[in-house]
Simulated scan of single mutants.
Amino acid sequence: MIVAEVIRSGFVESVHHGVVAVVGGASFGDVESPFFPRSSNKPLQTVGLLTAGLVPREEADLALISASHDAETFHVERVRAILAAAGLGPEALRCPADLPLSETAKRDWLRAGGEPERILMNCSGKHAGFLATCVVNGWPLESYLEVDHPLQKTLADTVSRLSGEPIAALAVDGCGAPIFAISPLGLARAFQRLVEAEPGTPERRVADAMRAHPELVAGTGSEDTVLMTAMPGLIVKRGADGVSAAAVAGVGAVALKISDGATRARVPVLLAALRRLGLDVPDLPEVVLGGGRPVGEVRAVF
């Protein structure tokens, strides 16, 4: 179904199709067929790490382990500290080398003569958490990304438990880690379980860490950080290819997928879904530019 329109100079230029799963309200589109939530799975995987015995240095580490971070200095330093506490260095990471997501951090890094590094990759916090959990359990480090590794089996079980459905398919995510297919509705249910869990449980610890440290979940000016800062009580996690999931305790949860993977439609659709849950959301227009100036917008229409 059409979930967003691109308006340029008053005319509908194009449309984006997708699905919006809502726990606590009406859903739109086929929300029961499985898909790959990409990085929106990360908070669920962090729950699995805690269940497997991960002992973070401090609760803020859980926010970064759940993150798609922008590789700002404070992100990179924390990833390095998580690894060091486990007796490891950045060379243990098996995610691909990359440059910072943040354009400012990327420019600064390149200006200083830097090159792509694994620790700069937006998933390096998750991989550091993977490695730290393997160290606690005495599991092999070199093979921690293999599907049959005890770590990945634990994470698959956790995602299945939280979503309330079996894993429909396995694939390899952009960072090299296994990614688990569930339905949009299952993803929304999982996020609701995080925010409504009892204090002190792995689920609630992850949700509380994300809410307390939104800057670690994404970065300065990034959508997840901006939304959680503006809306106390909200957890939200973006994923590649037009995915996002969010939840507020006692209100509901949302998971969405833009079918063509368009990032520009993600925020308008998410905000519209949160408004339908009765939440007061910030005005974050997705502006369409022409010649470097605003000439339109992307708006939700479902």
Results as ranks from 00 to 15, higher is better:
Pro96Leu: 12
Leu131Cys: 06
Ile82Lys: 00
Thr225Ile: 10
Arg204Glu: 07
Asp157Thr: 13
Leu120Phe: 13
Ala209Gln: 10
Thr104Val: 15
Tyr144Met: 09
Val301Phe: 00
Ser160Lys: 11
Val217Asn: 04
Arg205Met: 14
Asp30Tyr: 06
Arg264His: 05
Lys126Gly: 05
Arg275Met: 09
Phe36Pro: 08
His75Ile: 11
Arg293Asp: 00
Arg266His: 03
Ala253Met: 09
Ala273Phe: 05
Arg94Lys: 13
Ala84Leu: 14
Thr229His: 11
Gly252Ala: 03
Phe302Trp: 15
Arg118His: 00
Pro96Glu: 12
Ala188Gln: 01
Val267Pro: 02
Thr225Pro: 04
His17Gly: 15
Glu215Lys: 02
Gly25Ile: 05
Glu59Arg: 06
Glu32Arg: 10
Ala97Val: 02
Val301Arg: 01
Leu49Glu: 00
Val135Glu: 09
Leu155Cys: 10
Gly278His: 11
Leu162Thr: 05
Ile179Asp: 00
Gly174Trp: 11
Leu227Ala: 00
Leu83Pro: 14
Cys123Leu: 14
Gly10Asn: 03
Gly242His: 10
Val254Gly: 08
Val22Cys: 12
Leu162Trp: 08
Ala171Tyr: 01
Leu274Phe: 07
Gly290Ile: 05
Val135Ile: 13
Thr225Ser: 15
Pro202Thr: 05
Ala188Asn: 03
Glu58His: 08
Val281Thr: 15
Val236Phe: 02
Leu141Gln: 11
Arg299Asp: 07
Arg111Met: 14
Pro282Gln: 10
Gly200Thr: 05
Arg275Leu: 01
Gly186Glu: 02
Pro166Lys: 03
Ala168Val: 04
Ser40Cys: 12
Ala81Asn: 08
Leu83Gly: 09
Ala26Trp: 03
Leu187Thr: 10
Val172Lys: 14
Leu277Glu: 14
Arg276Leu: 08
Leu50Phe: 10
Ala177Val: 15
Val236Met: 06
Gln152Trp: 03
Pro37Trp: 02
Ile65Leu: 12
Arg238Thr: 12
Gly176Asn: 09
Phe28Met: 03
Arg118Leu: 01
Ile119Cys: 04
Gly29Ile: 10
Gly164Leu: 13
Leu274Ser: 11
Leu271Gln: 13
Val19Tyr: 00
Arg204Tyr: 04
Ile179Cys: 02
Thr51Gln: 15
Arg275Asp: 07
Ser9Pro: 01
Ile82His: 01
Ile65Met: 15
Val172Asp: 02
Met231Asn: 07
Arg238Gly: 15
Val236Trp: 01
Gly164Tyr: 15
Glu72Arg: 05
Gly239Cys: 08
Pro56Ala: 02
Ala265Val: 07
Phe302Met: 06
Ala253Lys: 04
Leu120Thr: 05
Ser163Arg: 03
Asp173Glu: 12
Pro214Ile: 13
Glu103Gly: 13
Glu91Pro: 06
Asp98Cys: 09
Gly113Lys: 11
Cys134Ile: 04
Arg276Gly: 15
Gly89Arg: 09
Gly48Thr: 01
Val20Ser: 01
Phe302Asp: 11
Lys257Asn: 02
Thr154Tyr: 00
Ala105Asn: 08
Ala255Thr: 07
Asp30Lys: 10
Phe74Lys: 12
Ala273Asn: 10
Ala84Cys: 06
Leu270Val: 03
Pro90Asn: 06
Gly138Glu: 12
Leu270Cys: 03
Gly53Cys: 03
Ala81Met: 00
Gln45Phe: 11
Ala197Asn: 07
Leu99Arg: 00
Arg189Gly: 02
Ser9Arg: 14
Gly291Glu: 02
Ala265Asp: 04
Ala21Tyr: 00
Glu142His: 08
Leu185Ser: 10
His149Phe: 07
Ile258Pro: 11
Glu5Cys: 03
Val243Ile: 15
